[in-house]
């Protein structure tokens, strides 16, 4: 039996969560103050994931850049692959929140979607 101390990143409260593991599987999660913490802790010790946010250039918009993010969390070790996939990607204005900018980024199954509005110039 082993334990791991984590800080939940589910929300800014940052609860100190303790995960108890036996033979590589989670037997208990304590210290979390909401169900999100339980989910986070179980994932973090088995398959850690993150939402990735970045920006891409916009052509013909009132702003040069638009905020983008992965449509769901992706494995932590795919973060840089995802950033590489975004290199050189350009979006044409108008861009609306939720527009798909790049599908299946770096083979993660997650799309890159717009997280900001950029009207056309």
């Amino acid at each position: 039996m082993s334990t791991r101390e984590l800080t939940c990143i589910g929300c800014p409260l940052g609860c100190a969560v303790t995960v108890t593991l036996k033979d590589g599987s989670v037997t208990a999660v304590t210290g979390n103050t909401c169900p999100r913490g339980d989910t986070y802790a179980r994932k973090e010790v088995t398959n850690p994931t993150r939402i990735v946010t970045s920006t891409v250039h916009v052509t013909g918009g009132i702003h040069p850049m638009v905020n983008v993010k992965t449509s769901s969390d992706i494995p932590k070790d795919k973060i840089f692959a995802c950033m590489d996939a975004l290199k050189g990607v350009r979006a044409a204005a108008p861009v609306r929140i939720g527009d798909v900018i790049l599908s299946n980024a770096a083979g993660t199954g997650a799309d890159i979607i717009a997280a900001g509005n950029v009207p056309a110039k």
Binding site: C11, P12, I51, T53, S54, N67, K69, I97, A115, G116
Partner: peptide, 19 residues
């Protein structure tokens, strides 16, 4: 603020700053 984590209390979901 293009990172996510905004709005968990207000909208019960994680948004970026522009969202």
């Amino acid at each position: 603020c293009i990172h996510n984590g905004f709005g968990l209390h207000t909208f019960k979901e994680e948004l970026t700053g522009p969202e």
